[in-house]
Design a protein around this nucleic acid. Sequence first.
DNA 1: ATGTAAAATGAAATGATTACAAAAATAGTC
DNA 2: GACTATTTTTGTAATCATTTCATTTTACAT
Lengths: 139, 139
Amino acid sequence: MEQQQISTYLLKSGIRPLQKRVKIMSYLVSKRNHPTVDMIYSDLIHEINGLSKTTIYNVLNLFVQSGVALALNIEGNEVRYDADTSTHGHFKCKICSGVIDFRIKQEELPNPMLDGFRIDEHHYYLKGVCSFCANKIEA
Amino acid sequence: MEQQQISTYLLKSGIRPLQKRVKIMSYLVSKRNHPTVDMIYSDLIHEINGLSKTTIYNVLNLFVQSGVALALNIEGNEVRYDADTSTHGHFKCKICSGVIDFRIKQEELPNPMLDGFRIDEHHYYLKGVCSFCANKIEA
DNA sequence: ATGTAAAATGAAATGATTACAAAAATAGTC
DNA sequence: GACTATTTTTGTAATCATTTCATTTTACAT
Ligand SMILES: [Mn+2]
Ligand SMILES: [Mn+2]
Ligand SMILES: [Zn+2]
Ligand SMILES: [Zn+2]
């Protein structure tokens, strides 16, 4: 996606499309790697002059509050960010630590009997060993 | 459940049923409140003389590794513990912060096409407002 | 160009968890 | 019951992620 499209998207979502915000959203959208703050920082520090880690925290918190990104808490010690806010599931590999998406339709997720509850978010996480790592192990 | 039963259960799971371990497991089993380390600490400090927070971390890590407890990462800033290791889902209320169980059969959870992947854990989390808090709000 | 408001920065504070060495408890042996 | 080896617990300090906050910089409208 072009930076121009990202700008338009942010604007529509009520976020002023400032340079660093556009770069960070652009990173999320193009990489689709569910990065941690540190991953974003070490990748973008080369590209954006004088980028601060605090800025990344600021921008991501803004994105999450504005609903253009999700914070994934698959594991207690790290938060991962995702620009894909549609309904889908996540698998995390214990070996390579990679997080990958899988498609899930909203209707496929079980709807428990929770009378009078208001449900805002659905999170479906799987953990295990990805096929790439599984192959390496048995080899 | 009696402390005696807890001891037997821990022993069967390869865990020496020492006093503090039994008390902590007993707490998890009887309260069923998905507590954080701090909740366990502030509740048990009265009952167990000279209990240290480090011990709670040690014991819970042992429980999780031995498979007699689950660590739930519903929200990035807190880990909650659960002695119920059967398949079930969790709902967290944004208002009162309570975490409650709901029954889900293993077969109800979608099984994505992940060829060659080994899936070890399923986590299904919902977030929103519980019926008790919803009532308070509209009142 | 100037002024004002918003955003970014970096250092310090906070909070949760882990590492580690010393002290205490446990279990087996005499 | 005392002795000893091993495991567990404790308390402090270290680590790591995130937030707070005062200051500097940037963006934008006049
Ligand atoms: Mn995703
Ligand atoms: Mn539960
Ligand atoms: Zn892998
Ligand atoms: Zn509630």
